[in-house]
Design a protein around this nucleic acid. Sequence first.
RNA 1: GGCGCGGUAGCCAAGUGGUAAGGCCGGGGACUGCAAAUCCUCUAUUCGGCGGUUCGAUUCCGCCCCGCGCCUCCA
Length: 472
Amino acid sequence: MDKVELHDTLTREKRELTPSDGKQFRFYVCGPTVYGPAHIGNFRTFVLFDVFYRVLVAAGLQPRFARNITDVDDKTIKASQEQGLTLRAFTDRYTEKFHADCDTLGLLRPDAEPRATDHIQEQIDLIAVLMEKGHAYQGADGSVYYRVASFPEYGKLSHFDPAALQTQATNSAEALNLADEYDRDAVADFALWKAHKPADGENAWDSPWGRGRPGWHIECSAMSMKVLGQTFDLHGGGEDLCFPHHENEIAQSEGATGKPFALHWMHAVHLLVEGKKMSKSLGNFFTLDDLLEKGFAPDAIRYLLVSGHYRQQLNFTLKGVEGAASGLKKLRKLAAHLRVPEDADRTAPPPGSPTGAFASAWAVLRDDLNTPAAIGELFKTGSALLSESPREEDRMGLHKLLFALGIPPVGPENTTAETDAPEAIRALADRRWQAKKDRDFTAADALRAELTAAGWQVLDAKDGYTLEPLAR
RNA sequence: GGCGCGGUAGCCAAGUGGUAAGGCCGGGGACUGCAAAUCCUCUAUUCGGCGGUUCGAUUCCGCCCCGCGCCUCCA
């Protein structure tokens, strides 16, 4: 078992990861809310946790990985109604889309993928325990709320002072004005069970507190504990989830069980697109399909997402994806030279296998998941190996790294789309080929210029040529 | 205001108290009639600014400037 260290949001220290049950390393990642196709920012998070999972596998920590699907909330309900679909039919559609996108980006499937609406009873049971223990109460509106004041450790993850949170909230003019209308005892209290509203339509379930639906945070507490146990090794998600979502999960779970919930917390920092926070109005809001339509290869997109450290903002740019494709090509040459198996990105070499010249890359990857440093090491050691005859230990080492990063050692055979050139272009190209065969290079060059002007590039081979549309 | 992160070559991005990884782009060269591809090679006396600690700081401390995140349901 190789040592893996990771920064912990809770303690703000780097800590070694070990399975607390001595067998499997159990971890949970907050998955997508399936109300539409996920965007590239979502995928940064999911790709990073995929790499994390892979590193654990390759290190021999035998991970058990759970990632949920959130299929009930304001957005899913609203969008399903707008499309005239049941919540289930609607969320099924985008769950499938999410799976397809994950496959495209080479993500390994989690060991468990619980859905919120499949675990309503577990959530109700958990809320009932919180009611019994005095951590929850039913408000005047019929909704059930968590009493934050009942959990003294509230704020320990995000390092917020609960008192300050209260003060702050009540200090805002809006909160003051509305204070009397609150159904909660304190503004920091959050909903565990939401009483049915007309806007929810059919999307309601029976509970001891009347019809309604679960609050957002409770699903992750209920499902993670069901799938992984009351105490498990690590919980992760995007940085935005640290507060309040994860803080609330801790309050709910530890309030109910009296035991530690997740032992280690990991948060992935959001990316920037073209230097700005993604937003539809800025036109830098990309789904995976948007990028594929622009002609970018999925593995280049993945490579770029992995080329930044997970605790560092990453600036995702279109130019960057192009550059990523160039870098990938080099790595693949190295993989071919070392005869790494073609499925190296999908099949892990045995844990403990030799890493040879790639030991340093493997080491930095296990040191707080330093993917950019690992890629750097890959190139550094790799270029030296290119001129030597391949060694088995290096082959194993590169295999391990490519698996951990999820980089396929072989690219798609036809990276450039098979675009058929129009007849007129073909004719021009044929004339140029003839001119070239006649060694009339002046005419050949003139024809090449014409083709270039028309947006086509001629690539010569020994006994023929191919036409490619010029890049964007 | 509270908590936190960052400012390293044209771009992306590691890193260390001991004198700046790597990738992309670009330049030069080889090869090719040209182009593409490929190969070789070059590109930060310097790490936002100013002080301090130190034999020595990009790395530690202080202040300042700039950018960013979270502060109630956005990965």
